[in-house]
């Protein structure tokens, strides 16, 4: 079994939004919507300011409330790598999953179903990286299998201090930000 995760180096990310454009193009994300986005988190006052730039998306949580609350099973955990996906033909558009997500990572697609990041599962199944990872000009994003002890994601997480977004929400997010 694999457990896919993403590690993003905030020291390398410059917020260029290439990942956002690549995702929109790869997945035909409708105009005005985003499956991934850039957050700039500035702390402190000049001259002692710390700026963290994060490329954010669905955290493909290990404890996904969006999957638990779905009345039809449209929101589900994929067999491959524990990726959280939405089966469009099962989704009734009740929006409970949107309300249950502490990251606001989901949205209603203009066609009526709920949409979100898929970790580009169609690419991953072919042995490729997600589109956002593959286009990053600073190579700040690493995608891989947490269950593989020799994977690059494990190496980075074991060697660098890191955090996830809103761990206090208890959803066990699988996107990690290197500090």
């Amino acid at each position: 079994m694999a457990r896919y995760a993403m590690v993003i180096d905030t020291k390398k990310c410059v917020g260029c939004m290439d990942c956002v454009v690549a995702c929109n193009t790869e997945n035909n994300v409708p105009e005005g919507f985003n499956r991934d986005w850039i957050v700039q988190d500035a702390r402190g006052s000049f001259p002692t300011v710390n700026l963290e730039i994060r490329s954010e998306r669905c955290n493909h949580c290990d404890n996904p409330p969006c999957v638990y609350c779905c009345p039809t099973g449209a929101s589900h955990i994929h067999n491959l790598g524990g990726v959280v996906l939405v089966e469009h033909k099962l989704c009734i558009g009740c929006k409970a999953c949107i309300a249950s997500c502490p990251y606001d990572a989901r949205f209603v697609h203009p066609e009526g179903y709920v949409d979100k990041c898929t970790f580009c599962i169609h690419r991953v199944e072919e042995g490729l990286d997600p589109a956002c990872v593959s286009v990053c000009p600073t190579y700040c994003m690493t995608f891989g299998d947490l269950d593989d002890v020799n994977s690059e994601v494990n190496r980075l997480l074991n060697s660098r201090k890191h955090h996830s977004v809103l761990p206090e929400a208890g959803t066990k997010p699988q996107i990690f930000y290197l500090e």
């Binding site: 005005g32 919507f33 985003n34 957050v39 606001d104 989901r106 949205f107």
Partner: peptide, 18 residues
């Protein structure tokens, strides 16, 4: 001080869920 900016503007999600 903590200032957070976000490029995401998904309809009915941002700025407040509706």
């Amino acid at each position: 001080m903590n200032e957070i900016t976000n490029t995401r503007m998904n309809p009915s999600i941002d700025q407040f869920l509706s």
